[in-house]
């Protein structure tokens, strides 16, 4: 099943796990399954309409899903999904 890399700001929701395995056939399905296992995570990833927030990117095997098939992007065994939010710290 695909593995998902969880960024630090979301790890409180995944019991501090930095990587979780989720059985899902596409990204939309993955988000719903994650929400059922880690309640609250969907709200962090998606806006009220269910679209992925514009300052958080989801990558499947290092390709941004916005330039694949969005939430319909298919997932296969062994795929790596990375969640990468914008961060601003520098000082």
């Amino acid at each position: 099943m695909p593995s998902v890399r969880i960024p630090t700001p979301l790890r409180k929701l995944t019991a501090d796990q930095d990587e979780v395995n989720i059985s899902a056939s596409n990204v939309s399905d993955l988000i719903e399954t994650m929400e059922s296992q880690y309640p609250g995570i969907k709200d962090r990833l998606c806006d009220e309409s269910g679209n992925v927030r514009r300052f958080i990117n989801l990558y499947v095997n290092n390709e941004d899903i916005r330039f694949l098939d969005g939430k319909e992007t298919q997932l296969n065994e062994g795929d790596v999904v990375s969640i990468i939010p914008a961060i601003a710290g520098g000082l």
Partner: peptide, 10 residues
């Protein structure tokens, strides 16, 4: 561009 968060960097 560089950015930081806790133990992470971009």
């Amino acid at each position: 561009s560089g950015a930081l968060f806790q133990f992470e960097g971009q």
